[in-house]
Write a protein that binds this DNA or RNA. Structure first.
Length: 571
RNA sequence: CGGGGCGUAGCGCAGCUUGGUAGCGCGCACGGUUCGGGACCGUGAGGUCGGAGGUUCGAAUCCUCUCGCCCCGACCA
C-alpha cells in the first residue's frame, strides 16, 4: 500500500473521551472510530489487524479439527424461550420485532441456535465428535460499555461448540480446545494466564478463562511470577506470609494500653511507634451472616476476602456489621474491637494467629491490648480468609504472587447436557439407545483482542504490534525530496511485495519527522529508511519498532534483512 | 440504575460568573521559504454553540425539559 493513497486518519491530540491506552491509540493511529457508545467502525488498518487475528484463530481451530460455519445474528426468539434465556437474559438481550410483530433478538451467544442445528442434523454416535465454530458479530446491550473495543455492545467473537458422546469425550474436546487456545494466544504475542474459574451456575463441570495481563483490565487476577498458578482474586489463595520482625519469640504478658483516637490500623501503628508495623497488629471485623454475627480476624496489613469468609460459613454472602450492631455485640466502638474476650464465633486467618505478641483491640474504648497471642488469649477457627495481595507467597511454589488486572480474552467451558437436555438434542449410541449430546463451548473476544494487544504492546510513541498481527509488517520510508530515495524505496517495496510481505510505502511528501512519528504511532514492527545520506554509501537503515537503534544494511541486502527480521519474530 | 464530569469548526480548547456582531491552537486548501524525529510565514475555507421550549429588544451565556458521550460503582453467557 502506498501511504499517500491509504485511508489512515491519524490524530495529533488525544480525543477527550478516551482514557485507556488502547482506546487512545486506536483513535489516534486511525484504526477505529466510534459510532455510538460501545459501537465502533474498524477502519482499514483495524480491519487488517482483525483479519490477521482471525486468520490465526482459523488456522488453529481448523488444525484442531473444528469446522467453520456461519449462524445468523438476527434470530427468532423461540429458541431462547425454549431454554428460558429469553427471560433470564434481561435487558442485555437486544430484542427486535419484525413487521408482523414476531419476536426476535440479536444473538448475544449461540448455544441455542447451534443446539437446534445439532438436534436436527445429528442422529448417530457415528457423527460425533463434532466441533463447529464461527467468527461473527455478537450483540449484548451492556449496562456500561467502556474503553473502546474492550467492552462493546456489538463485538466480534469466535464461538465454538463441541458435541460428544460422553462426559469423558467432552473433556477430551475441552482439553484440546485449551491446547488450541494456548497456541492462539502465543501466536498473538500475548502475555496471558489461564485462570481456573469456579464451575459456574449453568451445570458446568469445568471452565477456564484466558486472562490477558494488563493493568487496565477489568478483572483482578492473582498470578505467580515463578509458576503457572493464577486465579481470580475472588478465589485466590496465598501461601503463608512471613511473620513480622519481632524482638522476641517469647510470649509476653498481656497488657492493656490506653490508646485514644486510634481507630484505624495506621493510627494504632503510629501510636505504638518504634518497630511496630501493621503486620504486628490484628484487624478484627464483625460480620453479619445468615446465622448471626461472627468476628473475622486478619493480620493488620491484610484484607478480609469476604467471598472466602462466606464460603467457610456456608452462606451466600456476609455483610460488615453496622456501627450500632458492633456497639451492641461488643460494647465498644469500631476501631477498638478485638478477639480477646469476644463471646461469639471467631474466624482467624493463619497469618493472623502466627503473629506473636500482637496488638489488637481490647473491646473497650479507648484501649488496645499488647502481646495478644492466639491459643493463650483467644481461640478461633483458623481458616484462610484473607485476600491474596501483591507480593504474597505463591501457595504452590517459592514464587511471589502479583496482583494483575486481566482482560478476559477467552473462555472455555464444559457445558455438559444443560442445553441438549432442554432442547432434546439426542443421538443414538452403539446400543441404539437415545442419549443427550454432551456439549462444550469456547469463546474468544476477537475484536477485544485488538485492544488487548495494544494494551500490552505500546509505548509513549504509539503501538508496537507483534509482527504476526501487524497491519503491515514493514514500512519503507524514503527521506528527502530528491528522486533517488523514493525510487530506491519503491524498488525495495516492490521486491518485498513480491516476497509476500505486507509492506507500506510512505511516499507522502512529508518531512522526515512526520513520517517517523507516524510510523511509530501506527506501530509497524519494521521500518526501512531510505535516505540520500545512506544511498551514497550504498546502504539503507533497518529499524525495529521495539528497539531504539537502527542498523545499516546494504541496499541489495535489504529485502533479505527484512525477511529475516520478520521470520525471527514469528519464531 | 446510583455518583461525578463533559457537549462551542474534523481534533483539542477558550468564551458562560456579569446576555450585546462566535474566538484560539492543531488539522485542511492555496502561495512561498524549508527538509533525518510532528518546520515557518502569508492568505483562506469551515460552526443551526447537542436538541426543544421559555425569559428578554436581544441567549453559546439565564430558566425548564430532553438527547448524547466519558469516568467510578452496581450489573455483566
Amino acid at each position: 500500500m502506498r501511504y499517500s493513497r491509504a485511508f489512515i486518519p491519524t490524530l495529533k491530540e488525544v480525543p477527550k473521551d478516551a482514557t485507556m491506552p488502547s482506546h487512545v491509540l486506536m483513535l489516534r493511529a486511525g484504526y477505529a472510530r466510534m459510532v455510538g457508545a460501545g459501537i465502533y467502525e474498524l477502519l482499514p488498518l483495524g480491519t487488517r489487524v482483525l483479519h490477521k487475528i482471525e486468520q490465526i484463530i482459523r488456522e488453529e481451530m481448523d488444525a484442531a479439527g473444528a469446522q467453520e460455519l456461519l449462524m445468523p445474528t438476527f434470530v427468532p426468539g423461540e429458541y431462547f424461550k425454549e431454554t428460558g434465556r429469553w427471560d433470564l437474559y434481561g435487558p442485555t438481550l437486544l430484542r427486535v420485532k419484525d413487521r408482523k410483530g414476531g419476536e426476535y433478538h440479536l444473538a448475544p451467544t449461540h448455544e441455542e441456535i447451534i443446539t437446534d442445528l445439532a438436534r436436527r442434523e445429528v442422529k448417530s454416535y457415528r457423527q460425533l465428535p463434532l466441533n463447529l465454530y464461527q467468527i461473527q458479530l455478537k450483540y449484548r446491550d451492556e449496562p456500561r460499555p467502556r474503553a473502546g473495543l474492550l467492552r462493546c455492545r456489538e463485538f466480534i467473537m469466535k464461538d465454538a461448540y463441541s458435541f460428544d458422546v460422553s462426559e469423558e469425550a467432552a473433556l477430551r474436546s475441552y482439553e484440546q480446545m485449551r491446547d488450541t487456545y494456548h497456541r492462539i494466544f502465543k501466536r498473538l504475542g500475548l502475555e496471558y494466564r489461564v485462570v481456573e474459574a469456579d464451575s459456574g451456575a449453568i451445570g458446568g463441570k469445568q471452565s477456564a478463562e484466558f486472562q490477558i495481563l494488563a493493568q487496565t483490565g477489568e478483572d483482578w487476577i492473582v498470578a505467580c511470577n515463578a509458576c503457572d498458578y493464577a486465579a481470580n482474586a475472588e478465589v485466590a489463595q496465598a501461601g503463608p506470609a512471613a511473620p513480622p520482625a519481632s524482638g522476641t519469640a517469647e510470649l509476653q504478658p498481656l497488657e492493656k494500653v490506653k490508646t485514644p483516637d486510634t481507630r484505624s490500623i495506621d493510627e494504632v501503628v503510629s501510636f505504638f511507634g518504634d518497630e511496630t508495623t501493621a503486620a504486628h497488629t490484628l484487624k478484627s471485623l464483625l460480620y453479619l451472616a445468615a446465622e448471626g454475627l461472627c468476628l473475622a480476624v486478619v493480620r493488620g496489613d491484610h484484607e478480609v476476602n469476604e467471598l472466602g469468609l462466606a464460603r467457610h460459613l456456608g452462606v451466600e454472602e456476609v455483610l460488615l456489621a453496622s456501627d450500632a450492631a458492633v456497639k451492641e455485640a461488643t460494647g465498644t466502638e469500631i476501631g477498638f474491637v478485638g478477639p480477646v474476650g469476644f463471646a461469639g464465633r471467631i474466624i482467624a486467618d493463619p497469618d493472623a494467629v502466627a503473629v506473636p505478641n500482637a496488638i489488637a483491640g481490647a473491646s473497650d474504648t479507648p484501649y488496645h491490648y499488647k502481646n495478644v497471642n492466639h491459643g493463650r488469649d483467644f481461640e478461633a477457627e483458623v481458616v484462610s480468609i484473607r485476600q491474596a495481595a501483591s507480593g504474597d507467597p505463591c501457595p504452590n511454589c517459592d514464587g511471589k504472587l502479583e496482583l494483575y488486572r486481566g482482560i478476559e480474552g477467552g473462555h472455555i467451558f464444559v457445558l455438559g447436557t444443560h442445553y441438549s437436555d432442554k432442547m432434546h438434542a439426542t443421538f443414538l449410541d452403539e446400543a441404539g439407545s437415545s442419549q443427550s449430546i454432551v456439549m462444550g463451548c469456547y469463546g474468544i473476544g476477537v475484536s477485544r483482542l485488538i485492544a488487548a494487544i495494544m494494551e500490552q504492546h505500546h509505548d509513549e510513541h504509539g503501538i508496537r504490534w507483534p509482527v504476526n498481527v501487524a497491519p503491515y509488517e514493514v514500512i519503507i520510508t524514503p527521506i528527502g525530496k530528491e528522486a533517488a530515495p523514493l525510487t530506491q524505496a519503491t524498488e525495495i517495496y516492490d521486491a518485498l511485495r513480491a516476497e509476500g510481505v505486507d509492506a507500506l510505502l510512505d511516499d507522502r511528501a512529508e518531512r522526515p519527522g512526520v513520517k517517523f512519528k507516524d510510523a511509530d504511532l501506527l506501530g509497524i514492527p519494521l521500518r526501512v529508511t531510505v535516505g540520500s545520506r545512506g544511498l551514497k554509501q550504498g546502504t539503507v537503515e533497518l529499524k525495529k519498532r521495539t528497539e531504539s537503534e537502527s542498523q545499516d544494511v546494504p541496499i541489495d541486502g535489504a529485502v533479505a534483512a527484512v525477511l529475516t527480521a520478520i521470520n525471527d519474530r514469528e519464531g
